[in-house]
Structure formats: C-alpha cells, structure tokens
Computed example of a mutant assay.
Amino acid sequence: MHLSVVSSLDSQCREVATARLGPTHSNSVVVLHDLLDGSLVLRRVYRDGELLERSETMLEHGCLSCTVRLDVVPTAERLAACGHDHIVLGLPPGVSVDMAVAELRRGLDRPAVIDNAVLAIDPAELEDHIWDRHTLYESGFTSMPEDERTSGEFLIGEFGHVDTVMIQPGLGAELGGGPQSGAWDHGVELCGQLAPHAAVSGVHDDFRPGCYDSGEAHARTRRGAVRVPLDAGAGTFRTVLHKVERPLHPGRFREALPQLAAGSHWLRGRLWIASAATTRIAVQGIGPRVWLEGTGQWLADAGHDPRSGTLPASDVDAALDWHPTFGDRGTVLAVTGRGEDVDPREIRGLLDGCQLSDAEMRLDFSKLEDPLGLETGL
C-alpha cells in the first residue's frame, strides 16, 4: 500500500493538492476528511475525480487525534483491502502530517509506504498566518475549543515535516491575493526560507513523487535543531545564523530576547544558559509567540562523543558543532524575517553581549541570578 498525506488550513488548497496527487499512481483513490461541529466526521472518496462515497460518522469524542485514529486509519485500511494501490489522504484542517503518519504506522495492519507528505497553502496568506494571534479554534480552522495552537505554529510545524509544499490560490484569493499579487510572490519566497529542504510546487510545476524520508523529517524537527537555506538573504526575506561558544548570562539574555524576536517570523535554536549549564534548552519564536523548553542534557554532559561512533543519528547538528573544549554545549540561533527587520549585526551583537566574560567564566554558575526560572525547570 502506498500513501500520500496532505495537510492544510485551507480546504480549497487541500482539494486541489489531493487531486494532483491522485494521478501519480494507477489505481488511486483520494479521501477527504473533515471534522465538523458536534464531533461529526465527513468523509468523501474520489476516483478519477468522480465521487465514489460520501458518508458521515459521529465520534464519541470529536478531537483531531480521534478523527485520525478512528476514521482516517480505518478508511485507509479498508480501501487498501479493496485493492487500491495508492491512497491520497486529505487530512482535516489543523491535523498535522506527523500525527497522521504516526497513527497510520501504529494502526495499519498491513505494510505501507508513505510516498509524500504535502502541505497545501495559499502563499499570499502565509505572512498573515504567521502573525495571527488567534488560535486555530478562534479562527475557525478546527471545531475544538481546546486547540490553542496558532496558525503560525501549525504551519511552521508542517514546514518541518513535509517534503513538498504545494501552492495554489485558496478560499481568500478573491479578496486581492492570487498569483499576480505581491503578497503571493513574498509568500513563495518565504516558503523557501521556512522549508529549505522541501520542493515548492505550483499548479503547473513538476511534482517529485516518492521523496518522503521520515528519519530526515524527525532529525530536522528535533527541538533545538537548526537548518537554514543555502540562499539565506538574497531577497525580501533573510535568515541570520549565529553561534556563541560560551554560556549565556541568564539576566542579559532575558533582556536581549525581546529584541532578538522583534520582527522575526521564525526564531529557533538551542541555548547554553549558565544558570542551567547542563540542560540543552530549545528556543522557538513564531510570529508573536516565543518560548523556551528544556530538552534534556547536552551530549557532553551525558557522556556522548561523536568521535566514538555512538552518536544517535538525530544528533547530527550536535556532531557538526562539536567543540574541542565544550563538546556540543553552545548557543546556535537562527532568525528569519524581512530584511529590514532582521539586522545581522544587531543579532550578533546582542548574542555576543550575552556571553559570560572571562571573570564570569571563573565563577560558580549556580550562583548566578536565574530570572528565566531555568533552575527549577521550564
């Protein structure tokens, strides 16, 4: 069984993307799932553009994970048993590719190959999504009041997991977006900054089938991982990468963080904070939201060394940044935003100013003030 999985916030973009994926194999079917109010799942199955099946299922607990586990997975299993070789799954808006792939691998009774993981998006709306403070529920993308993710958080997560970004006009194109608008061109460029690994495919562009690599997807989305585009600053948007060897003073970093995040579409990386010196801290900022999260010990503190040949594959970033004295300890930060809002000299100056001085390096780190609250957990 071959599967292609499509996520989106825009049902029109999703339907166009799934229709394009159907003909990539013979004997394909396309399934569109939607979670409606009242825990009602609407399922539509198409073959060669013709509607084969339309049905509704009432779930006892109508959340996105239950929709995938109790409807998407059984539907894929049933259609494969009917002899369909390739199934395109159009996920309900707000369902992540990562969740769907995990549930499919856990719940299917037969072997399955994930050919492609695709995000369908209208690029003219991308910047608005990144900066929207409303939750997915408040914006009407999901029917779950408990869903507190913003559209920007959802999309940044999808950009990391998918292998392909399919762009086409969405439901709001008639309001002034569309391929002829400046917002469209800026959105396409921003896609390349946010998902440098992914193929960005327009309606008339070639599509590269069969390129999903789950191991690579998990490596690049590991908390604190940093990947940047090769062309990081030639257009409207730029990505600034900076690395700092010494631990950061927690007080100075707290003061610098708002300035680092200001105007940033996406801030990400890992931090070595002196007041929590053995803890690898991931930082992420998406539009108006910024947060820190502890991700366990540094490899050096856990006794790992990439030179021993035992380094886990998911820690490729740490191996590339291994320092002869500090090991993988260190700060690596990438900031993506509009060129006028992301100043490389300012970012580097702010981070360099947060480093411990020679005198501070000789002090007991545990005695430093801890305004970030890292000593007691994040």
Rank of each mutant, 00 (worst) to 15 (best):
L126S: 06
L126Y: 03
E127S: 11
H129P: 00
I130K: 01
I130W: 04
D132G: 09
R133A: 13
T135Q: 07
L136T: 05
Y137V: 07
M144L: 15
P145C: 11
E146Y: 09
R149V: 07
T150S: 14
S151C: 15
G152H: 08
E153C: 12
I156A: 03
F159K: 01
V162F: 00
V162I: 08
D163Q: 10
I167H: 06
G170I: 07
E174N: 11
E174Y: 13
G177V: 00
G177M: 07
G178I: 01
P179T: 07
P179Y: 05
P179S: 07
G182A: 09
W184N: 06
D185Y: 10
V188G: 09
E189K: 01
L190E: 11
C191E: 13
G192V: 02
Q193N: 13
A195E: 06
H197D: 04
H197A: 01
A199D: 08
A199Q: 05
A199Y: 05
V200R: 11
V203T: 12
V203H: 03
V203N: 06
V203Q: 08
P209V: 14
P209A: 14
P209H: 11
G210I: 15
C211V: 15
Y212H: 11
Y212E: 01
D213R: 12
S214D: 13
S214R: 11
G215E: 15
A219Q: 15
R220A: 03
R220V: 01
R222D: 03
R223V: 07
G224C: 04
V226E: 02
V228R: 04
V228T: 15
P229V: 06
L230F: 13
L230Q: 14
A232S: 14
G233F: 12
A234Q: 14
T236N: 11
R238E: 11
L241T: 04
H249I: 03
P250L: 12
P250A: 14
